Computed example of a mutant assay.
Amino acid sequence: MGHSSTILNQIASFFPRHDFEKLARKHHHGQKFRSFNRWSQFLAMTIAQLTSRKSLRDLVSNLAVQKSRLYHLGMRPTSRATLARVNEQQPYETFKAMFFQLLHKCQANAPKHRFKFKGKIYLLDATMVNLCLSVFPWANYRKTKGAMKLHFGLDASGYLPVFMDMTEGKKHEIEWARSLNLPAGSCVVFDRGFTDYTWYETLDKRKITFVTRLKSNAKVYRYGNRRKPDSPDVLEDQKIKIPGYQFTFRRIIYVDPETGIEYQFVTNSRKLKASEVAAIYKERWQIELFFKWIKQQLKVKTFLGTSENAVLTQLWIALCVYLMLSYFKFMAKFKGSLTQLLRLLQLNIFERRPLADLLKPPDKPGKTQFSPQLALWN
Rank of each mutant, 00 (worst) to 15 (best):
N140M: 14
W138H: 06
P161Q: 13
W138K: 04
A139F: 02
F136K: 01
M148S: 09
K145F: 02
K149G: 15
L131Q: 06
D155H: 13
V135A: 05
C132V: 05
Y159D: 10
L150Q: 09
S134T: 07
K149R: 13
F152Y: 05
G158V: 05
G158S: 11
H151C: 02
F136I: 03
L133S: 13
P161M: 10
P137E: 13
G153L: 00
L154I: 08
F152K: 00
K149H: 14
S157T: 08
A156V: 06
K149Q: 12
P137M: 07
C132M: 05
D155N: 15
K143H: 15
G153K: 00
S157E: 07
L133G: 10
G158C: 09
V162H: 04
V162M: 04
P161K: 13
L154F: 04
K145W: 00
Y141W: 12
C132I: 07
G153E: 00
K149V: 10
V162W: 02
T144V: 09
P137Y: 12
L131T: 10
S134G: 05
K149W: 15
G158A: 09
N140T: 13
T144Q: 15
R142Q: 14
N130S: 12
V135N: 08
T144E: 15
T144L: 08
R142V: 03
Y159R: 06
P137L: 12
Y159A: 04
S134R: 07
F136P: 01
T144F: 14
Y159V: 02
G158L: 06
P137T: 07
H151F: 05
K149N: 10
L150T: 10
M148W: 06
P161A: 15
H151A: 01
G158M: 06
W138P: 03
A156D: 11
K145H: 11
T144N: 15
H151Y: 03
P161I: 09
L133T: 06
W138D: 05
C132W: 12
G153W: 00
W138E: 06
K143C: 09
L131P: 05
C132S: 08
W138G: 04
G158R: 07
W138A: 05
L150I: 15
L154Y: 02
V162S: 08
D155F: 05
G158F: 14
Y141K: 01
W138C: 10
N130A: 05
K143S: 15
K145G: 03
G153M: 00
V135P: 05
N140S: 12
L154N: 01
R142N: 11
